[in-house]
Amino acid sequence: MTLRKLGLYAAALLLSAWVLVPILLIALAATTPREDLYRWPRPLWPERLSLEVLSSFARQEAVLRALGNSLAVAGLTIVLATLVSAPAGYALSRYRFRGREAVQLGILATKMFPATALAVPLAVAFIRWGLYDTLFGVALVHTALSLPFVILIVASVFRGVPAELEEAAMSLGASRVGAFLRVTLPMALPGLAAAAIFTFILSWNEVFAATLLTVNHRTLPALLVHSVVAEGAPLHYRYAGGLFLVLPALVIIFVIRRYLLTLWGVTVR
C-alpha cells in the first residue's frame, strides 16, 4: 500500500462517513426510547433501542392517511408523467423535425422554473377549477415538475433502441404502432421503469407544492411541514418522520443503483 493509495482510501472513507453518519444518526434517533432522547447528559450511544417511537408515529391516523396520500399521488404522477412524456420522448429520439430545438429549449427552460413560483398561482387556479386540496391536483403539479426530466430520460431510453430494429419490424409487415409495441417497447421497458422510479422519488420528496395545495389531504411531507411549522411537533415525532421519509428513498436508490448515473446524468444535461 503506497502512501498515495492510503490517502485515497482515507479521503474516500471520510467522504463516505460525511454522507452516511447523519443517516445513521437519524435512524438511531428514531429508534431511541423517548425518555432517553430528552435526558441530559445524553449518552452518545443509547443504552437500548426500541421501535416504540416509530410505531406510535406510524399508528397515528393522520400519518397513515398522509402515507396513503403520498403513495397515491406518486402513483398518479407516474401514470400521468409516463403518458404525457413517452410520446414526446419518442418524437425527440426518432424524428428530425422543424421546431425540435425549440422543444428542447422549452424543456430546458421549464426545468428552471421552480416549484416555488408555480405553487401559488396554481393554488389560486385550482381553487377555481375545484382541484384545490385534492390528490389529483397535487399529482398534476408533480407531473408538471417532473415532465421536463422524464421527457429527457425517456428520449434517451428510446435512443438506446436502434431505429433500425423498428424498421426491420416494419419491413416484415408490422405497422408503425405494431413495430413500436412489439420491438421498441419491450426493449425500452427497463429504462421506462427506471424513469418511473425517478418520478416516484421526485413526487415522494416534493414538499413545497404539496404543502401549499393541500389542507385536508396532505401528503407525508406536507403533513410533516405542517406539524413542524404550525404545530411545533416534538422532536421524537420529527425524527420518526424524517426516517419515514428517508427509508423508501434509500431502498429505491439501492434497487436502481446501477442506473443512478444514467438517470440523473441525463436529467441535468
Binding site: P162, E164, L165, E167, A168, A169, M170, S171, L172, G173, A174, S175, R176, R182, V183, P186, M187
Partner: peptide
Amino acid sequence: PPGRRDLGMVFQSYALFPHMRVFDNVAFG
C-alpha cells in the same frame, strides 16, 4: 407502408431483435 410491399430486407447491422430468440426473430414476419 413497408409492411405492405411484400419484401424482405437485410440490414447492415442485421437489426435482429435482441429480446427474441432466433426462432422468434425468423418467425416474426
